[in-house]
Design a binder for these strands. Structure first.
Lengths: 234, 234
DNA sequence: CGGGAGATTGACTGATCTCAACCCGGGTGG
DNA sequence: CCACCCGGGTTGAGATCAGTCAATCTCCCG
C-alpha cells in the first residue's frame, strides 16, 4: 500500500512536465501522503465558485471544464484543464474563495496539494515560484486576449477562433475528430453567445465545407479558412 | 547626484506599499542605479504591444492606461495603473513580447527594474515571489470577471459597472468628481462598445440623476442604483 | 477667424437574442 | 413491446439592442 502511494506520487509529482519538477527529493518527501490522487467521474464537480479550496489540483488525466456562473445563471467557460494543467492555484495563492467552478468533462485523475505545502515551496524554492508565476502570467495573457476578442469580434469570428483553439489544445481521435466533445450549449458558453447562434453558425461552417459534424463530434476540415474568419493575428 | 538617486530609489523601492518591501538592504543595494525613475508626460507611450520590454515598471505617480489593440485597430482598455501598481511584469516573467500597450493619461513618475534583477529576486526571495504571484493572481481573477461580464451583460450594465469600478479605484477631487478623466471613446473602450452608445447611456444616467457630467468629469450621485443596474454580486 | 478633436443627436440597419415549436434518440416503466 | 419522457439539437419568426453613418455642435487653440 505504501509502495503504491509512492508510485502514484512519483507519477504525479516528478513527471517532467509537472510543475513539481523543480522540487528536490527532500521537498517531495515532505508532501503529505494523505493527498492521494483521486479518480473523478464525468459530471463530478471538483470545486464550486465561492467555496474555499485549501490547495490546488494537478490534472494527470481527463478534461475539466473551468467556468464562472454569471448573474443570470448562465455559465461562461474560462478554460479547460487537462493533463499537466493545474487548477485552483489562484485561490490558493490569494487565499480567497474560488472564483470559478470546475466540472469533469472526461473521467479524470487528479492530485491535490495542500495550500501550506505550496506556499512553503513558493517561499523556499525559487524555481518553483518562477514556474507558478509563469503559469499565472500565461493565463493572464490569454485572458487579456479573450477580453479583447469578446469585446470586439462578432460571434462568427469568435466561434471560428474557439474551433482553432480547440484544435490546438486537444488531440484528434483516429477519425480525426476533436477528442473533446462539447454540447452546443457549452460551445456557446465558450463563445459567449446563445446556443441557437452556435448551432446556426456551425451548420453554416459545415455548408461551407470548413468542418464536419457527427453529433457532438467535430472535425476541422479547413483550418486555414477558419483562421481567416477568426481574424486571429498569430 | 548620487545622493539624489539614493533618495529616489528609496522612495521608489522601500515604500511600504511597494512590492519591494520584502527585499533586504543587501538586495536593494544590488538594484542597478542606472534605472533612475523617470517622468513621463501625458500622451507618452511607455511601451507598445509587440515590443520587448526588458523588465517592469513601478508607478509612483500618475495614471497609465493599459490596453490592447484589436484586429481593426480599436483599442480595448484592460486596466489602469496608478501609484503602487506595476506594469509589464507579465512579459518580464514569460520573456515574451508585450501583449499590451501602456500610455500615460496623467503625468507620471515611474521606476524601471531590469528583468534580470526581478528574476533574481523571484528566485532568492520567497516573499517577493509570493508578492508577485499574488498580484498576478489578483489580476487573473479580475480578468475572469471581466470576461464573464463582457460576454453576458448588456452595455448598460457594463457601463454602470465601469463607473462603480472607477469610483472604487480613483480618488475624488474637491468637488467630488472622479479624479480620472476619460474621453467618451476611452470609456467605450473599457466597456467594449461604441462611443455613441456610451454617450447615450451617460446622458440617460444623468437624466435619471445617477451621475453628473461636466465635460469629461464625472460625479457619481447615486452609487446604489448604479450598482443595482450593474448587476454586480459583491 | 478657421481648423480640428471630441461630443452629441437622429435615423437606419442588422447581427443576435428570444421564444416557441418540433425533432430525435435513448432510457424507463408499465 | 410500446408509449412516454427528457435532454439536447434544429429551425423559423419576430423583437431589439447596439453599431454604423452622417450631420451638427462645442470648445479650444493657433
Amino acid at each position: 500500500m505504501k509502495n503504491q502511494v509512492t508510485t502514484v506520487k512519483k507519477e504525479c509529482f516528478i513527471d517532467n512536465s509537472s510543475i513539481f519538477r523543480h522540487l528536490t527529493q527532500e521537498e517531495l518527501a515532505i508532501i503529505p501522503i494523505d493527498q492521494e490522487p483521486d479518480t473523478y467521474k464525468r459530471g463530478t464537480i471538483i470545486y464550486s465558485e465561492g467555496s474555499r479550496i485549501n490547495g490546488f489540483y494537478c490534472v494527470q488525466k481527463g478534461i475539466i471544464k473551468i467556468y464562472k456562473t454569471g448573474f443570470d445563471g448562465k455559465e461562461q467557460i474560462i478554460r479547460f484543464a487537462k493533463k499537466g494543467d493545474i487548477m485552483g492555484f489562484r485561490s490558493t495563492i490569494t487565499r480567497e474563495r474560488a472564483c470559478t467552478s470546475a466540472k469533469v468533462l472526461e473521467d479524470a485523475f487528479i492530485c491535490f496539494v495542500h495550500a501550506d505545502t505550496v506556499l512553503e515551496f513558493v517561499k523556499h524554492n525559487g524555481n518553483f515560484a518562477l514556474e507558478l508565476l509563469q503559469i499565472a502570467c500565461k493565463e493572464l495573457g490569454e485572458a487579456n486576449d479573450y477580453i479583447t476578442d469578446i469585446a470586439q469580434k462578432t460571434v462568427r469570428e469568435r466561434l471560428a477562433e474557439v474551433l482553432i483553439h480547440l484544435r490546438k489544445d486537444f488531440d484528434l481521435d483516429n477519425e480525426k475528430y476533436l477528442q473533446i466533445t462539447l454540447t452546443r450549449e457549452e460551445l456557446a458558453n465558450m463563445v459567449g453567445t446563445a446556443t441557437e447562434s452556435v448551432i446556426r453558425l456551425l451548420s453554416e461552417f459545415k455548408q461551407d465545407g470548413l468542418i464536419e459534424l457527427h453529433g457532438r463530434r467535430i472535425k476541422i476540415l479547413d483550418e486555414k479558412t477558419l483562421f481567416k474568419i477568426s481574424n486571429l493575428n498569430d
